[in-house]
């Protein structure tokens, strides 16, 4: 059997944990995962106009009994500190986030490389669990265990998809 790709692994783990709502602001690296969840009737997947909006939708859905995950890129994460600090964390809502990491390992856009440096300090400042996913053989373990922990401890978690795992976005000359 051929080895599963990162996005197939993620999709399968989400299903196993009954994470059926996928909200996103699109990103090229996330495209195979976005396409995969759109093609699978298990998932309700749609794009939102802002990452904050998507986080609010997922928070409401969770309180209503549906688990969701928010997909975005690094610059999108940078719009979230206020709502993480005033909604997800104090209300104890297990906000699941997956960020495709820009700004490192061959970034060509200076704006992306600067905004990327704010991501981990923000997560650390709010004591939000986060994992940088670099290896295919660890992908399932990280996502599976972290969703279990987020739900059990009612705390957000952020998965950072490194270019080492996804290939990242390459400089188009």
């Amino acid at each position: 059997m051929p080895e599963q790709s990162w996005h197939e692994i993620v999709r399968n783990v989400l299903k196993r944990h009954n994470v059926s709502l996928v909200t996103y602001v699109p990103d090229n690296v996330l495209r195979p995962l976005i396409d995969g969840v759109h093609a699978d009737p298990f998932f309700t997947a749609f794009a939102c106009t802002r990452e904050e909006e998507a986080l609010g939708i997922n928070a409401g859905a969770w309180m209503g009994g549906t688990r969701g995950i928010l997909l975005m890129q690094t610059s999108g994460f940078a719009t979230l500190p206020n709502v993480l600090a005033s909604l997800s964390v104090p209300f104890q809502i297990p906000t699941l986030m997956m960020v495709s990491e820009r700004g490192t390992l061959g970034e060509f856009n200076i704006g992306q490389s600067l905004v990327a440096r704010t991501m981990r300090p923000v997560l650390d400042a709010l004591a939000i669990e986060h994992h940088t996913m670099t290896r295919l053989d660890e992908a399932q373990f990280i996502v599976d265990r972290s969703i279990t922990q987020a739900v059990a401890t009612r705390a957000p978690v952020c998965f950072i998809l490194s270019p080492l795992l996804t290939g990242g976005k390459v400089f188009a000359k």
Partner: peptide, 10 residues
Amino acid sequence: PIALGVALAQ
């Protein structure tokens, strides 16, 4: 958005 999420779930 929060209301939309609740409405989707229920």
